[in-house]
Nucleic acid binder design. Structure first.
Lengths: 195, 195
DNA sequence: TATCCAGGAGAACGTTCGTTCTCTAGAGTG
DNA sequence: CACTCTAGAGAACGAACGTTCTCCTGGATA
C-alpha cells in the first residue's frame, strides 16, 4: 500500500478516535484496529504516539478552517445581492457554521481546547498546535471584520464569543450557544455603526 | 489525625496537582507524597481516584464561585457611591476578577473545561461536575444582569464572553482576554441602554 | 504487662499501554 | 529457483499506575 494512503488511513482513524474519546483514552492498538494498518507501519509513519496526535491536529486545522472559509464565502453568492452589507454577514455566517457543527451528532467540542486541557501541561508540541490553531482562527476573524470596515477590536470580541460558544456547546451538549453568540455579535456590530 | 483534616489535606494536594498537570498525569502516588497521607488513608477517604477528582472539582466549585461573589460584592462598597449605576459595574467586575485570576502565576485555565476535555467523554460523574459548575456560574451572571435591570439574554452573552476569555487566556497564556471581554460586555450593556 | 488494633510505609499485584521484537509469508529480482 | 527485502500479525517487554496486601510500630485498654 502506498505510503501516502497509509498515512491518510492512520490519520482518519486517529481523528475519529482521538476526537471522540480523547487522546489518552485511545491506545495505539485501537488506532491499529481502526486503521487496518500494522503497528509496524504505524510506527514507521509516526515514530511516537505524540507525533500522530500532532499530525491529527495539524490536518484537522487545515480542514476545519477550510470548511469554515468555504461556508463563509458561500454567503457572497447565496446571500443578499440587493444589499451591499454582505461583509458583515460574512462575520455572522461564522456563527451559522458553528451552529451546524454543534448540531452534528458526533460533535464533541473543540479538538484543540480538548487536547490542550488533556495534554497542554504535559506536551509542548500539542500545546503549540492549540496556540497555532487559535491564532489562525482569530486572524481569520479579524480579517473578516476588517474587510467589513469594522474595528479590529471587534475581531477580538467575536473570537471570544466563538470560543465561548464552542466550550459551552460541548459541555451542555446543545447548539444554542451558536445562536446566542450570533445575537451578541449582531449587537456589537450594530453598536459599531452607532458608536 | 482527624478525618476531616486528612480529607482537607488530600483535597489540597489533589487540587494543586490535578489543576496544574491534569488529572491523568497525576498518580495516586503523587497525591500521597504531596498530601503526606498513606495510600491506605487516601483510599479510606476516597474509594477510587475518580471520587477524589469529583471531590476536588466540587470543593473548587464552591470556593471559586465564593471568591468571585465576594469580589463582586466589594464593588458595592469600594465602588462609586455617587453613581447609582453600580449594578452594571457588578457585571463588569466579573471580568476584573477574571483578569486577576488569569494573571496569577499558576493560572492554568478553567479546571472544569480542562477536566471535561480530558475525561468528559469517559467519566459521566466528571462531565456532570462540569455541567453543574457552568450552570451555576451562568445562573450567577444572569442574576447579576437581571438585578441591573438588563435583559437576561445579556446574561447569555456575558457568559459566553467569560468562557471564551478563560479558554483564550489559558491557551495564549495571557490575561488580555479579560480586558477584551470586558470591553465587549461594556458595549453590549450600552447597546441595551440605547436599544 | 499482655492484647488489640488503627494506621503508616511501601511492596506487590494486575492491568494497560507505548514501543519493539520475532516469525512468517510473499513479492520482486538475478 | 535461490535470495532478499518489505510488511503483516501479534507476542513480548518494560514502564506506569490504580488498587490491595503485608508487615510493623505505637498507643489504648484491661
Amino acid at each position: 500500500m502506498d505510503s501516502t494512503v497509509a498515512t491518510e488511513r492512520a490519520l482518519d482513524a486517529a481523528e475519529r478516535l482521538f476526537y471522540q474519546r480523547g487522546v489518552q483514552a485511545v491506545g495505539m492498538d485501537d488506532i491499529r484496529t481502526a486503521s487496518g494498518l500494522s503497528l509496524k507501519r504505524l510506527y514507521q509513519l509516526f515514530p511516537a504516539k505524540e507525533r500522530l496526535v500532532e499530525a491529527y491536529l495539524e490536518r484537522r486545522d487545515v480542514r476545519w478552517r477550510q470548511r469554515l472559509a468555504e461556508y463563509v464565502e458561500q454567503v457572497d453568492q447565496h446571500g443578499h445581492p440587493e444589499r451591499p452589507a454582505a461583509a458583515e454577514d460574512r462575520v455572522l455566517a461564522v456563527f451559522d457554521w458553528l451552529g451546524q457543527w454543534f448540531a452534528e451528532p458526533d460533535f464533541n467540542g473543540c479538538a484543540w481546547i480538548n487536547s490542550y486541557g488533556e495534554l497542554g501541561a504535559t506536551s509542548e508540541p500539542i500545546a503549540r498546535q492549540g496556540r497555532l490553531h487559535k491564532a489562525a482562527f482569530k486572524d481569520y476573524l479579524v480579517e473578516l471584520v476588517e474587510r467589513a470596515g469594522l474595528p479590529s477590536s471587534l475581531g477580538d470580541h467575536v473570537f471570544l464569543l466563538a470560543e465561548g460558544a464552542m466550550v459551552t456547546a460541548a459541555i451542555t451538549r446543545s447548539a444554542d450557544p451558536a445562536a446566542q453568540a450570533a445575537q451578541a455579535a449582531r449587537l456589537l456590530i450594530a453598536a459599531c455603526g452607532k458608536g
